[in-house]
Every structure is written in C-alpha cells, then in structure tokens.
Amino acid sequence: MSTHIDTHPRTIDVALGTRSYPVWIGPGLLADHARWRTALRGRHALVISNTTVAPLYLDRVAEGLDGLHWSSFQLDDGETHKTFANVGRALEALAQLGATRDACVVALGGGVVGDLAGFSAACWMRGIDFIQMPTTLLAMVDSSVGGKTGVNLPAGKNLVGAFHQPRAVVADTSTLATLPDREYRAGLAEVVKGAAIGDPTFFAWLEQHAAALSARDEAPLIEAIARKVSYKAGVVARDETEQGERALLNLGHTFGHALETAGKYSLLLHGEGVAIGMLLAAQLSERLGLSEAADSARLHRLLAAVGLPTAIPVGLDPQQLLALMRLDKKNLAGTLRLILWRGIGRAEIVGGVDEKAVLAVLEAACR
C-alpha cells in the first residue's frame, strides 16, 4: 500500500496573510537552489548550524549562496547549547558580517539550531528574515513550522523566546538518512502527537504503518511528514500566537518539558520527553474521568511500536517534576492548565487541574 504514496516534493503553505510562507517537503531539496534562493531578499546571509550537521550539508547550502556576502556560525550539538550565550555569539557573527535589515539567517540543523537561529533573527535589528532548513524529523514536523523561537534557562525550557515566522521551510528528507536512530524515533513522537490531538483517522493510519515508519520507508515517511505539517499549518493559521487552539499542540509538553529539565537536558531527547508526557497526560485524563483506559492503551502500543520510551526514567522525583510543571507558560493564576484529551483525536485545554491527581500519576509512573 505504501508504495503507491507519492514521493515527489510537496508544498504546504502556512497561510498568515501577507506573511504566508511555503513548507517544501521531499528528497534533494537542499541542492534545489533555484527553489529556495528566491526566499533570500538581501545581500547578506548567516548560516547557523552545528558541528554535526555542518560537515554533512553546509557545502550543499553554500552552493546556493553564491554571489552573496555570507558566513557560517556553528554550535556544539545538543539541547544544552540552546542558551543566551550562544545567541550572543550568533549576534556577534551577524555584526561581523555587517548584516543589514534585509539580511537572512539560514537555520541548518535540528530544533535547537532552528529555535536559536530564529530567536537571533528576531533580535537582530528588531527582526530580519530567516529560513528553516530542518535536518531532523522532529524539526521537520514540528519546530521548523509556526514561528516559535527561543532559548532555555536553567529554570526551564523555552522560557524566553519570540514568535518570528520563517520566510520558507526547506525539509530535505534525504538528510534523514544520516540521522541517528534515536533522533529519528524521537521525531516520530511529534507525528504521533499531531494525530493524538485532532486526527483519529491519521492515528489509525500510523498504527497501520508503524513498522514501515520505523524502517524509514520513504513513501510513508513523506506522507506522514506532509500530514503532520498540513495539520500544524492549519492550526498556526488560525491561532498564530497561541491564544487558544494552538495550545493544543502542547499535548504532553508540560510533563515532557519537566522531564527534560529534571534530566538537565541530557537525559531525554525532546521527542522522548513528549512521548512519555503524552502517555502521562492520557493517564491523567483517564484518572479524571475524561477518557477511557482503551485510549491510553492504544497510545502506549503505538509509541512502543515506533520504539519510543513510555516510562519515566529511574531516579527522577515526582515532587520535583510537579514543581517544574508549575513553571509552564500555559498556567494561569497559579493553577495548572494542561492539555488533556477525551480520547484519541479529541484534545482540549483543561484549567485548574488538581495537583494531587497530577502527583498521583507521576508517583505511579515513577515506581
């Protein structure tokens, strides 16, 4: 069945009026310079990447920058490097380049690179263009689309940032061939999340194609990316700055960010935290009488089928996790405001969640 799915490049538009932009998905797109070079409007470009991705793909991008005044800036790889210190270094690189207001930042890498590059672009001269060139599955299906940018603090993840939409997203699926297995599987968590929030038909499709997706079969992979991006693009178009519906995209993230922070951003990958967090949110929904055990069980089976973790790592403390959850940006008036669900495809925002119920779920999962 999957052999009949189209593998040609897809174009999905994120419709934000005059600031609309394309998301291109398919193999070989980094080398398709004629396609993405049109998104660069000025004479200056700064490519922000990391020490893992740049040796693999920077040359490919550089060929498309011929004739521009450009330079590159590389982070060390990993979530621990998404810091203000590195934003400062990126801004210094823009200064040394002599970047003017029509300059463009090109984010070549995963979510850490994209978030930091976008935030740096938002800060330089109060906002310049940037282009997302995601090289991880997680970045392709989630962080590169929608304009959320930011950095981490020791107190919590993404507590500082800005909404700053890219000029274009170039999702070259060929880059996934060099992605480590653990990183690839972490990206599948965001694919599952999109289906769990609002598309039960897509969830069933993922259950049917779990083995093919785990094996990185090209056709179903491109189809899954396109479906998830299309869903997110619609949500972002309706609620760009997360005043309502867009908050649903954070299913599992309040739990997940707490797990990542407690592990000092090195114990779990973001997608792994989201996977565990989604299951905890489902279990909390079940405990609060919002959903059935069968829904949690289906989610557990799908996450396990694509090789994602479903248990809190040994050694993390439930009380510390709850304290970290209190810092979440979605909370209002000092009470927990979580994304829960009434079953697969029916997520909702729930305010005033009883902390005792949350703690009970965390304690049960930490045994």
Rank of each mutant, 00 (worst) to 15 (best):
Q132A: 02
G118P: 04
T178N: 10
R182V: 00
T201V: 15
A262K: 00
L336V: 03
A204V: 15
E292K: 04
I197L: 03
N86F: 06
A293V: 05
R41C: 08
E183M: 04
N158T: 05
I48D: 09
L280C: 13
G67N: 13
G42N: 09
W124A: 02
G42Q: 12
Q96R: 13
G273W: 09
T83K: 13
A54G: 12
L65W: 09
L269E: 04
I344V: 12
H69W: 10
G67K: 13
A224H: 03
D239N: 01
R10Q: 08
P55E: 06
F255T: 04
L91F: 04
G351S: 05
D328M: 13
A85Q: 12
E183N: 04
A281V: 06
D115V: 02
L321T: 01
L138A: 11
V361C: 11
E190M: 10
L290W: 09
L284P: 08
R227W: 05
H81S: 03
F203V: 09
A364E: 09
G277M: 05
L116D: 07
A93L: 07
E245R: 05
L302A: 15
F163A: 00
G234Y: 05
A122E: 10
A212D: 15
D129H: 07
G147K: 14
T254H: 05
A122D: 06
A294Y: 02
T201E: 15
I5A: 10
G88C: 08
E79P: 03
A103G: 14
R89L: 07
S143Y: 14
A297M: 07
L332I: 06
P166C: 00
V112D: 10
G271I: 10
I5L: 12
R167F: 00
E242Y: 01
T335G: 06
G263R: 00
I25T: 00
L75R: 14
L65G: 15
D172Y: 14
G118V: 13
Q132V: 05
A168I: 01
R89P: 05
T310I: 09
P134D: 09
R238K: 02
P200G: 14
P309M: 14
D239M: 02
S144Q: 06
P318Q: 00
N158M: 08
A311I: 12
S143M: 12
L324C: 07
A31G: 11
D76H: 15
N50S: 04
I48L: 15
R89N: 12
G127E: 04
G277A: 07
S291G: 04
A196H: 03
S72E: 05
L302M: 12
A122K: 10
E207A: 11
V236T: 02
L324T: 10
N331R: 06
V358W: 01
I12D: 01
G26S: 01
G110A: 10
V47N: 10
V306M: 15
E260C: 03
F202P: 12
G147L: 12
D295K: 04
Q320H: 02
Q208E: 15
L284K: 07
W36D: 01
V112N: 07
V87W: 13
D6R: 11
L153M: 09
L362I: 00
L94Q: 04
D199H: 10
L332K: 13
H44N: 14
I25V: 14
P220K: 10
L16G: 01
L56P: 04
P55M: 05
G343A: 00
P9C: 06
G42M: 13
R182M: 01
A90G: 11
